[in-house]
Design a protein around this nucleic acid. Structure first.
Lengths: 161, 161
DNA sequence: GTACAACTTAAACCAAGGTTCAAGTCAACA
DNA sequence: TGTTGACTTGAACCTTGGTTTAAGTTGTAC
């Protein structure tokens, strides 16, 4: 049996967050002692692990509450719970894919600034006589990326600090 | 030259969001016509692309505003801008890594429910005589994962719908 | 020459996800 | 038998990232 403080420390979240989750219906299984204090069982920590995972995956609290509600209803909702997790898995995979696209773009921009720093000026990427980035710049990067034998040195400056 | 409505449509964001970003200092380069209307130049769209990327990467607006501020100061801040993007790249890589950890956990839980659905009851994962998940369950999954020749069928139910 | 659509602003509003505060309860230790 | 320290609650508050509203301006099309 763990107190709210024990759980907060174990899970790396604040006690006020735990109480907030309880209010929002995420912790209907938590029991109380005679004084009204929350007493967490070992199995409750398993639930908290799932809740934490879903939260970190970007699932809104009310959706998590729905899943917990299914869990409380017993074997009749097993298939529904499976489908729910299947759905969240696909959503998370999509989110990861989009993050990777952002990463690709960030690396393009790093290349842009790496080459600018090396040249001492951003002008090397401007259309001559303007302050406007050459429309072919991204394509130039993609070509360099295709031909690169060392991806790391394409976007990273050597000098430390 | 593009109006705020054109840009909203092109970038897939609302006009009110664009005005909000402007208020927050993300669009200091945008000029106005005689009537005070925003006129976006081609190069402004490049900036919006960067802003969008950073936003989708989870960077708070005031941090983005700082980067834009550096951009406005000319070649003297090139190195600082490179370092900034290098930092955001690392942060994004970390975020992706954590998402992948959540994905691994979600798949464990899918396996848990897949096997429960197949058995018709969650009890197969409980310590006999209790309603508590067997502490060895996760290890059991990890062993199954190691020995699996078909990762997909380990966590996915066959039946459609 | 007037009506309309698209723009402008400031200010109010909203939702999510908590945190903080005030007032009170309790168990254990000295 | 106090006095801590950890807990309880409801209510107020906060931040982020916008959206909505109200009132006004302007260029263009009829």
């Amino acid at each position: 049996m763990y107190s709210i403080g024990d759980v907060a420390e174990k899970m790396g979240i604040s006690t006020s967050a735990i109480r907030f989750y309880d209010r929002k219906g995420l912790l209907p299984f938590v029991e109380r002692d005679n004084a009204g204090r929350r007493k967490f069982k070992q199995n409750d920590l398993n639930f908290l692990e799932v809740i934490n995972c879903l939260k970190k995956s970007g699932v809104p609290i009310k959706d998590i509450a729905h899943f917990i509600d299914l869990c409380m209803q017993g074997d009749g909702t097993l298939r529904e719970r499976y489908d729910y997790l299947d759905h969240e898995e696909a959503a998370l995979e999509q989110r990861i894919k989009k993050m990777k696209d952002q990463l690709d773009f960030l690396r393009f921009k790093k290349w842009y600034y790496k080459t600018s720093v090396e040249a001492g000026t951003e002008k090397i990427h401007f259309t001559p006589g303007t302050n406007v980035v050459n429309p072919g710049t991204k394509h130039q990067y993609q070509t360099a990326l295709k031909n690169a034998n060392d991806l790391y040195s394409l976007t990273n400056l050597n000098s430390k600090k």
